[in-house]
């Protein structure tokens, strides 16, 4: 019996060792899908360049970038194991984490919120309180957290209407204030012939609502089982961002190639603006040294969590250490 048990233990150990060895092999051969939140654009230029310049491959990673069409959130994709890693907003991730979703932040790429509200000067809205009684269009989901916090903070009672993915309603005058990403819609106003000095922007970051946005996430299981892989993903992605910022022309050519493949209705100038805006968000408060990039600041985490709690999105503030598994600051 003892012999049988010994043989059984030996057999099990052998299988475990072989399995672990096989698993190691599988990591290098398996396609690792990195799901980003939207169609190709400069918002994801770092990942694109990490892929195109072989930074993932150099670390033995067979990464494939998957662009979301907006129908399902990237976090759902990693939960459903359709992707290994994804990018997501910090606010969304905190809400989900609080609800028990087993995800971890392994890197906080964008340090600054690019979300803002915009009105035309002709609407005579110059202070948040001027928005009372006005028509404001906002996006749903993660994009609604900051606006709600903003409205609550300034006790704004406005007509909130849903906003599509275009800025046409605002341009057509269907609403007085609309939501915009600084790197995207805000520039689309400019590309629609509106001069910057004709607009009044309300950056949430200027109203103590700086919610750092894109971060890299994976499941707790992925992180626990292979922290090295997570580290490599972050390492290569940051290298991709560094390359993108130092080689903007080449990067934009790649971005536009991806945009063409996806029949994106965008143009080179717009993607250039976006890349520059993203660069500002990446370097915000962490500086130009890539070694400092991608670190989640506890202050930012707590601010977002606190506001989320204040707004009733979450009941309690999750543990920072449980949430953030990447470099911290």
């Amino acid at each position: 019996m003892k012999k049988f048990i010994f043989i059984l233990i030996y057999f099990i150990m052998s299988i475990c060792i072989i399995s672990s060895l096989l698993a190691e092999e599988e990591i290098s051969e398996q396609t690792i899908i990195l799901e980003v939140q939207w169609f190709p654009q400069s918002q994801f230029a770092g990942y694109i360049m990490a892929y195109e310049k072989g930074f993932y491959k150099n670390l033995g990673l067979n990464v494939q970038i998957s662009f979301s069409d907006g129908t399902d959130s990237p976090i759902n994709k990693i939960l459903n194991e359709e992707a290994k890693f994804c990018t997501a907003w910090l606010s969304q991730a905190i809400v989900l984490k609080t609800k028990g979703t087993p995800i971890v932040n392994i890197s906080q790429i964008l340090q600054k919120s690019s979300l803002l509200l915009v009105s035309k000067k002709t609407s005579n809205i110059f202070e948040p309180t001027d928005m009372n009684g006005k028509c404001i269009s906002t996006w749903g989901g993660d994009f609604s957290i900051q606006p709600n916090a903003f409205f609550n903070k300034f006790d704004i009672n406005a007509k909130i209407v849903p906003q599509s993915f275009t800025i046409d309603a605002f341009l057509a005058g269907a609403c007085d204030v609309c939501s915009a990403m600084y790197y995207n819609e805000y520039h689309k106003f400019i590309q629609a012939g509106i001069n910057e000095d004709e607009l009044v922007p309300f950056f949430y970051s200027d109203f103590d609502l700086n919610f750092p946005e894109d971060g890299i996430y994976c499941t707790e299981e992925t992180f626990n089982s292979n922290p090295e892989l997570c580290k490599k993903i972050v390492q290569a992605s940051i290298a991709g961002w560094e390359y993108a910022f130092t080689h903007p022309e080449e990067t934009l050519d790649f971005v536009m190639k991806y945009c063409d493949e996806f029949h994106m209705q965008t143009n080179w100038s717009h993607q250039k603006w976006m890349l520059e805006a993203i660069e500002t968000a990446v370097k915000y408060q962490v500086g130009d040294d890539p070694a400092n990039w991608g670190k989640l600041r506890k202050d930012d985490f707590l601010r977002v969590a606190y506001e989320l709690k204040e707004q009733g999105f979450i009941d309690e503030i999750p543990s920072f250490d449980n949430f953030s598994k990447g470099d911290k600051k």
Partner: peptide, 17 residues
Amino acid sequence: SSYNYLFKDWYLIPKLL
């Protein structure tokens, strides 16, 4: 239903306007 026309500009804008 997945097309979600309620959020399409062609629906939303004339409705608001």
